[in-house]
Design a binder for these strands. Structure first.
Lengths: 167, 167
DNA sequence: CGGATATTGTTTACGTGTGAACAATATCGA
DNA sequence: TCGATATTGTTCACACGTAAACAATATCCG
């Protein structure tokens, strides 16, 4: 077995084969590149993508319930608990228990949280503007449109959480 | 129905704000959906995306060096070590140290590994064919094309690891 | 040659995210 | 009303992936 047979692929160029057309594989690579770009552009501000997301969505939805937020961001409630506690410890967000339902928790930006997002927003804007890599602006716009459709943002009817339609 | 009132986004519909146009955020959601579909379609075969990827790429590149593989799949060598040792323990792949460079390791599919990939390939093909969610086939093809460009597969010249061009 | 430097895979410590079990609270139905 | 059931957030154990330090080997250059 150790013999290369049809001569092993010892060169530096690897053949992806059918994987190179796999949507899942391409999405994984794309996300890795996207995150790397984020850290390169925002690294100096010491902010993680998850924190950025939470701040932005809380700025738009003050008082949103923790579970709703987790569902919208597609992360599990267990993990949301950790993030929220961490950011509360950092003084960025506040948690309140509403009168109507003592199980739940509502989330709000603190003054420091609002200051934080105001501080990072410009850099995030610049990052987003140039985060299209080798794509033209038109291609980036089309990519965003297709991704929105793929994740179910712009699908016409219900399709709920798991449309799964294969058309 | 507590009625959200003027403040407090207590309803179940959350406003994503500018995040809804963020390429990074959309890519994250898309990858989550893609992986979920993978597990739904392939779950019965008890195979993870990483294992699938390794088997497929080793089928195309017998004898590839471990580090080359890690670089191509954009995972760190440390993690590659773990995966490879695990799959070797499962009898799916074999590791050989070449004469020319005793530091490196070459990877090969075992007979069991080839059997394994032959067993899962049909399901993977079916999965890929229908994994386009609400997208039409034409849209899915365009999405793949744009992702390939974004991750640098089809870029003409160098652009290396970090083209960063903003065009 | 032979010492400085680089590369390769491994180990260890750690961060991020999930699944399952759980306690507290809310809601539904006889 | 009150017992059964569902929901909400939390905790714990664990998978996945990374960063940094490391040992072994290879390469470069005086």
């Amino acid at each position: 077995m150790p013999d290369a047979g049809p001569d092993g692929a010892r060169d530096n160029n690897l053949d992806y084969g059918p994987l190179g057309q796999s949507l899942g594989f391409l999405l994984r690579l794309a996300q890795l590149r996207s995150f790397a770009t984020f850290y390169k552009d925002m690294g100096a501000l010491d902010i993680r993508p998850g924190e950025m997301t939470l701040l932005m969505v809380l700025a738009e939805n003050p008082g949103v319930r923790q579970g709703i937020l987790a569902k919208a961001l597609r992360i599990k409630r267990a993990h949301m608990t950790k993030m929220v506690h961490g950011m509360e410890a950092d003084g960025l967000i506040a948690r309140t228990v509403p009168e109507g339902d003592k199980r739940s928790v509502e989330l709000w930006l603190t003054e420091a949280g609002r200051a934080r997002i105001d501080a990072v927003r410009p850099d995030f804007g610049r990052h987003e503007a140039k985060a299209t890599g080798p794509l033209t602006q038109a291609e980036a716009a089309e990519l965003r449109r297709l991704l929105r459709r793929y994740v179910g943002f712009d699908v016409p009817a219900d399709a709920g959480c798991d449309g799964g339609g294969m058309r």
